[in-house]
């Protein structure tokens, strides 16, 4: 404990400093990703007025996995893997939106279907990459990346990706009341004086940015973005003025717990999605049994 206080006073010896530095960076990253993914999930659920929407609904995570896999297959260094994941995540969502624009659909269903199509395509590409990957190290890296981990997050990664996540979080927090309006039907949104498409796309853009940044930092983490918004709405109701900040808080706490478990259950870090799955599934079942209307 004294070593910890010395660390904060800047007087710790170098070995302690190194360990605490790593721990500190990791925990900041976990908090940012937990809050970010949960807010992105809550945003998508409001925009699509559908409780089954998760941050991956438009294919960003699957696309990012393909980006990471391409980089891994080329034995690229970690920051190239992160960059490739970020770019492919965004590209996938842009393609999803392009496909939707050809459908001329009047509701959000077109966008959701396009997301399913793009996710499917990216899954196939990812599958073929795993097929040709060297099973000794590349395949392992891809699979590990697909299930999320903070083990490789360092100062440089946090400093480059953290600010993007922070911008996304702050933007969604400031504009969170507008999300309530987007849960209404299109005609009503229009006549209360809001441009439905523009507002929807702004929200989607920031939620996508958040998700892509989170995924490129630590890989794909399941369940958090889907389940946390439901827990938060149970606690404070459906008004996004309260549900969104609550999602950020609950998401951060839950992911810190999950990451601590992932670090301490065995000698090696176990992938995070395994832990979040075991935590998220029972919670989701509990919410469904309690008869909450999830808007489907």
């Amino acid at each position: 404990m004294t070593e910890v206080s010395r660390f904060f006073l800047g007087r710790a010896n170098s070995a302690t400093k190194l360990i605490l530095d790593l721990r500190f960076i990791r925990i900041i990253a976990v908090i940012l990703v937990g809050a970010g993914l949960s807010m992105a999930g809550a945003t998508f659920q409001s925009v699509f007025n559908n409780g089954l929407a998760s941050p991956n609904i438009l294919g960003v995570s699957t696309g990012a996995s393909v980006g990471a896999a391409i980089a891994i297959l080329n034995n690229a260094p970690i920051y190239v893997i992160e960059l490739a994941a970020f770019i492919m995540g965004i590209v996938t969502v842009v393609l999803t939106i392009v496909i939707d624009s050809f459908m001329h659909s009047k509701s959000s269903i077109g966008l959701i279907l396009s997301g399913i199509i793009m996710s499917g395509l990216m899954q196939s590409i990812l599958g073929s990459m795993k097929y040709i990957a060297d099973p000794e190290d590349q395949l392992q890296s891809i699979v590990y990346w697909e299930m999320g981990s903070f083990m490789k997050v360092d100062k440089q990664a946090l400093y480059s990706v953290g600010p993007i996540i922070l911008v996304g979080i702050i933007f969604l927090l400031i504009t969170r009341w507008r999300l309530n309006a987007l849960t209404l039907d299109l005609a009503t949104v229009k006549t209360i004086g809001i441009n439905p498409k523009l507002n929807r796309n702004i929200m989607i853009a920031f939620a996508t940015l958040l998700t892509a940044a989170a995924v490129c930092l630590c890989g794909v983490i399941g369940w958090i973005g889907l389940v946390v918004p439901h827990i938060s709405r149970q606690l404070v109701g459906d008004d996004n003025r309260y549900a969104l900040p609550m999602s950020a808080g609950v998401g951060a706490v839950l992911l810190v717990i999950a990451d601590t478990l992932a670090r301490s259950v065995s000698v090696n870090d176990i992938p995070l999605s395994i832990v979040t799955g075991f935590i998220g599934v029972p919670i989701f079942i509990f919410i469904l049994i309690k008869g909450r209307n999830i808007g489907v």
């Binding site: 007025n49 507008r178 309530n180 309006a181 209404l184 039907d185 209360i192 809001i194 459906d238 808007g295």
Partner: peptide
């Protein structure tokens, strides 16, 4: 056609949306 989970109060409040900016 109203298909939102918002409370009555929060739903009515949306009638004020255009009196405020997105921020």
């Amino acid at each position: 056609n109203i298909n939102t989970n918002l409370s009555l109060f929060d739903y009515l409040l949306l009638g004020r949306s255009s009196f405020h900016s997105i921020f």
